[in-house]
Simulated assay, not measured.
Amino acid sequence: MDTKAMLGTVLLLLALAKPSCPSPARVTNQRAEALKRLLEVFGMEDPPPPPAHSKQPPQYMVDLFNTVANADGVTKNPDVLEGNTVRSFLDKTHSEKMRFLFVLSSVGKNEKILTAELHLYRLRPRAPDGPKRHHLCQVSVYQVLKGGDLDAPGGKKLLAARLVALQGSGWEVFSITQAVRDWTEDESSNQGLLVTVQGLGGSLVETPPLQFASGQDHHESKKPMLVLFTDDGRRGASLPVGDFPDFQPQAPLLPSTLPVPKRAGPRSTRSLDQLQPCQRHPLSVDFEEIGWSGWIISPRGYNAYHCKGSCPFPLGENMRPTNHATVQSIINALKLSEGVSSPCCVPNKLYSINLLYFDDDENVVLKQYDDMVAGSCGCH
């Protein structure tokens, strides 16, 4: 996102925060237009409806958000995500059998599938009826092929297989990237997945010694889940901020020479404001006040900040000027050319934020948006 686009975002956030027009009808129209523009910033046409019931997000997605972002959603660990979007899908079959179906209609056509993972929760093993012969079994994940008989040679395609310990419990993750890419290219080819458990000799057993939680009778936190790491190509100029949790508001930028009037009457308020040095000011975005708290899980809001103030001649290093801004300031001060204004106070560092939210299908999405927070200001 360039400087012009960032300024546009700041203006619409300011419009949301404090509508300035006294006419109620006009305020309503202005708010609606601002919300529409803000949705465009977040890559949406309409806000998703809140879940029909008090649905809890998968713990995996909550933990991932907390690993990537601080409490305000600002990216603190930029190397965790592959791409800028993580989508989670719950199984739609709700069956005790090891067949799974994940509906991927919410994946955008412009999204590139980077990695797809099947997450299955391994339950604690039951007490064996007889003596234990082995401590391992083989778990295989198959893609069910369109129109195929599962027992026929062309009915399924092996995607992943490995040995899994019979003891203990926890999540098992299987990579199924190519199958998901096939499904997003041809939705009708999505006939689901089949998971089998075999002994070390390769034979199926009637009562598998290892069982996974199903989508029917087990707690929502343990339900089978498909996780997609994708990238929608929306990239800006955001900088990684490894120490952002301890990030403090930028200290005021003081110009090297700033004339202070001896008296300040009522009419000089605007002049005083214009004489304030270029610096960063708070700009709170409250998702509950906007009306989005029903579908946004985290954060509840964030501080976007905005830049305001003058860039007087001469520009000191504390104003973080570009060479172009320095030349422009000199030309303006010496009146060497008509129509040349003084440099502008704008963000010179931008940081990304992350949203954890429910989409239109009540799937939980973690998405990273670049250029959403002004980290510092300077004269450009």
Rank of each mutant, 00 (worst) to 15 (best):
G130T: 13
G339V: 08
P261S: 03
P259V: 05
M319Y: 11
G147C: 09
E362D: 14
P314T: 13
A251N: 15
S256G: 11
C345Y: 04
G265M: 06
W171H: 00
R235C: 05
A15L: 09
E111G: 09
F247K: 02
V197G: 04
S310N: 11
T67G: 00
E111A: 12
C311K: 02
P255I: 07
K97S: 06
Q30K: 13
P24N: 09
N84K: 13
E45N: 09
K92H: 11
S337Q: 14
Q328N: 07
P48W: 10
Y351H: 10
L120C: 05
L194A: 01
C307K: 10
V195P: 01
S23T: 08
N323F: 13
E338V: 13
T207Q: 10
Y302S: 02
K76W: 05
R99Y: 11
Q276W: 14
V241T: 10
R234I: 06
D72F: 08
A251T: 15
M61P: 07
V285Q: 02
L104E: 01
Q328S: 05
T28V: 03
L228W: 03
N318C: 14
D2T: 14
L166S: 08
R162Q: 08
R126Y: 03
S342L: 13
K18V: 13
T3P: 00
A333I: 09
R320C: 12
H281C: 02
C137E: 03
L239R: 11
P58S: 11
Q216R: 15
E172G: 00
S203Y: 11
L104S: 04
Y60Q: 06
P261G: 00
Y305H: 15
C377P: 08
K349Q: 14
W171A: 03
Q198R: 09
F229M: 10
G215P: 01
S221M: 12
D273Q: 13
N70G: 07
I353N: 06
L193G: 00
F247E: 00
V164M: 03
L123M: 14
E362L: 14
A15D: 10
G170Q: 02
P24A: 07
F89S: 01
E185H: 11
H218R: 14
G339W: 08
